[in-house]
């Protein structure tokens, strides 16, 4: 079996699929050298993200081990994560300068 999704950092709660995925199909991605499976709960276009865990409204979405935004609605595991259901967060530059 071949990986068809990339989880960049072990802290991530999303992975990026490298080919179009149909609803109900399995994605395969490496976690610390081991291939893991997950069922997609909806169609996901190539290069888009899939939720590796349920993400509640307001919770941070993590990719590259860093926050890439917050969920604007509850995102179930296996769902498509996109600009439709996550939003950018304001920066706190002053605390970064300390």
């Amino acid at each position: 079996m071949k990986a068809n999704a990339i989880m960049v950092d072990a802290k991530d709660n999303v992975a990026t699929v490298v080919e179009p995925i149909s609803k109900g199909a399995d994605i395969h991605y490496f976690v610390k050298g081991e291939l893991v499976d997950l069922k997609a709960s909806e169609d996901i276009p190539a290069n888009h993200k899939i939720a590796l865990a349920g993400i509640k409204t307001g919770e941070h979405v993590i990719k590259y081990g860093e926050t890439i935004g917050a969920a604007t609605r509850d995102i179930p595991v296996g769902a498509w994560v996109s600009h439709e259901n996550i939003v950018s967060l304001p920066r706190d530059y002053d605390s970064e300068l300390k």
Binding site: T16, P45, A46, N47, H48, K49, V61, K63, Y64, E66, T67, I68, G69, V81, S82, H83, I86, V87, S88, L89
Partner: peptide, 24 residues
């Protein structure tokens, strides 16, 4: 800047927020 970033093309290509685009 979040109005035009990511661009529509970035979003169609799977980049959802400016943070995600920048980290890449």
């Amino acid at each position: 800047c979040r109005h035009g970033q990511p661009t529509p093309g970035n979003k169609a290509g799977g980049l959802s927020t400016i943070e995600e685009k920048s980290l890449g």
